[in-house]
Amino acid sequence: MRLVSLSLYIERVELSPVLTLSNTEKTFGALPVVAPTSFSVERGSFVSIVGPSGCGKSTLFNMIAGLESPSGGSIELNGGDISGRTGHVGYMLQKDLLAPWRSVLGNITMGAHLTRGVTREDEERGAALARQYGLGEFLAHYPNALSGGMRQRVALMRTLMTDHELLLLDEPFGALDAQTRFEMQRWLLDVWHSTQRTVLFVTHDVDEAIFLSDRILVMSERPGRIVLDLTIDLPRPRRTAMLTDAAFMGAKRAILSLLHHELGE
């Protein structure tokens, strides 16, 4: 009897969404930036948000990160309201924001440095993480000695080290060249798969969104709201060959026609 209830409990936790937005909105003065928006993100899933420039994607992210308070509605993480409270999700931006005065390992452990002081255990964990994902030889390097792709890897390791279940990635590969971006996408899927985090990803690149995601939310022009919630039916692990798959093309057509419609074409 107890076992049954325990397994039911576990099932409920696993099935419950990590993140739930209910009628979340943001206005700056009289300007509505994000229209009332509701969606949930399932545990362990990879969800992307695409939309035209200035549609409020970054504002939405800032609200989830707690940097801005919503003007209305709620933001719940694992059932608890986190609106206006920072330090509950991992956050990464297009700019890698590495500290030039700290080594790669020092940057990976930046979260601990900023909140409570870095312990030996933090550094050992950070070093293990770096080794696992191809940064092992660069632990003592300063960021200025690294390429753009490498710097973004360090930034993602820094985000992972904070142990938050939900990672917000705001166009993390937007500034990289096409080849590096492609490598980074596959690397990110590898990291996501093996660390079992939940990812909410913002991008301008529809191909990137489809290749990475379980689900894509398409936002309208400002004030942003979700106009399409599309599940991507491609098996995992994702392969390069899928880029020309019928399901891939179908999803791309659906998203692009909406985006173009939004842009008034």
């Binding site: 080594s103 020092g106 030996r120 550094e123 050992e124 070093a127 632990l139 003592a140």
Partner: peptide
């Protein structure tokens, strides 16, 4: 381009 030590402890 490379620090003397990677971190404070290791």
């Amino acid at each position: 381009s490379i620090a003397r030590r990677a971190g404070r402890h290791i």
